[in-house]
């Protein structure tokens, strides 16, 4: 059953990674605004006919 330790190790790494990501994302202000993002996605940029900005790659 020693593989359990491997899996727990991996799972913990992942969970702790997610926790770190969560804390960092909160601290960096990702979640300061809990309303605008949900509305913003509804507005797509209208494709412009005239300009054809070379898409950044």
């Amino acid at each position: 059953m020693s593989v359990l330790f491997v899996l727990i190790g991996f799972s913990l790494v992942l969970a702790v990674g997610f926790l770190a990501a969560f804390i960092i994302s909160v601290k960096s202000g990702q979640y300061d605004d809990e309303y605008t993002p949900s509305v913003r996605i509804l507005f797509d940029d209208k494709p412009t006919k005239s300009s054809s900005p070379k898409a950044k790659s």
């Binding site: 940029d45 209208k46 494709p47 412009t48 006919k49 300009s51 054809s52 900005p53 898409a55 950044k56």
Partner: peptide
């Protein structure tokens, strides 16, 4: 329409 011109560049 394979490529939409993105309006909000940079």
């Amino acid at each position: 329409l394979a490529n939409e011109d993105a309006e909000a560049p940079a």
